[in-house]
């Protein structure tokens, strides 16, 4: 859980760095996207590892959650979960499931069209199409709203997950305060950044 979570955290950072370039310079974004979309190492090694990592993470998440519910046996009539642990830490399965349903939409939005373009329709390679496609996607207000809400839940998931993964890996010492601070920064900063990208393109191209 922790290893796959940390792996996803690193992936998310890389994903963010590429996406944020779209705000500043469409040609840089096109160049990076074209590289990621055509480089065989990325396509046939890193991408399958990423997909396996995501699947492992949420499947294990569901299995662990089921085991944990079973471990209680008879439920308490009164259980004051709030008194000793935060809501986010107790509801990783809810924030995680929201992120998962977002991922389904996200794959439908970007991954399936890619596969269709490259391997089913086998259209000619066009290194300049990515920015244009991105803009078109975020023209739809409903999509932008769903993305922003999902990023909020991602922030919740990470606000517990980041530091939690370190604890699970056995890292708890005088540097833990620093890990927790970085965790807070990351869990707010990255989802906010993603949300900003979506909103930016929507406003920029729909209204301006």
């Amino acid at each position: 859980m922790a290893l796959s979570g940390l792996f996803l955290i690193i992936f998310l950072l890389q994903h963010f760095i590429i996406n944020i370039t779209s705000v500043f310079d469409g040609s840089v974004f096109n160049w990076l996207s074209h590289f990621m979309g055509t480089n065989p190492l990325v396509q046939f090694i890193l991408q399958p590892i990423l997909i396996a990592g995501v699947i492992f993470h949420f499947v294990m998440g569901f299995i662990l959650d089921l085991q944990n519910k079973k471990a209680r046996g008879i439920r308490y009539k009164v259980f004051k979960g709030n008194s000793n642990a935060s809501w986010v830490s107790r509801n990783m399965i809810i924030s995680g499931s929201t992120v998962l349903s977002f991922l389904v939409l996200h794959f439908y939005d970007f991954w399936i069209p890619e596969i269709d373009y490259k391997y089913i329709k086998v259209l000619p390679d066009d290194p300049h199409r990515y920015y244009e496609e991105l803009i078109l996607k975020f023209d739809n207000l409903t999509r932008v709203v769903i993305y922003v809400v999902s990023f909020f839940f991602l922030a919740l998931h990470l606000s517990h997950g980041f530091a939690s993964a370190f604890q699970t890996m056995g890292f708890n010492n005088k540097y833990t305060v620093i890990v927790k601070s970085i965790g807070k920064l990351y869990s707010i900063g990255i989802p906010f950044g993603f949300a900003f990208i979506a909103v930016f393109h929507h406003i920029n191209h729909h209204y301006l």
Binding site: L64, Q67, N68, K70, A71, R72, G81, S83, N84, A85, S86, S89, R90, M92, H160, A163, S164, Q167, T168, M169, G170, F171, N172, N173
Partner: peptide, 30 residues
């Protein structure tokens, strides 16, 4: 025995009458 899995909510540390710290869980994981 069938105990559940730790997800680091920290409820145990708060409720422990002897103030056993989560540091111990990290140590055991190591």
């Amino acid at each position: 025995e069938g105990f559940g899995n730790c997800t680091n909510t920290g409820a145990c540390e708060v409720e422990c009458p002897k103030g056993i710290s989560l540091e111990n869980i990290a140590r055991m994981n190591r």
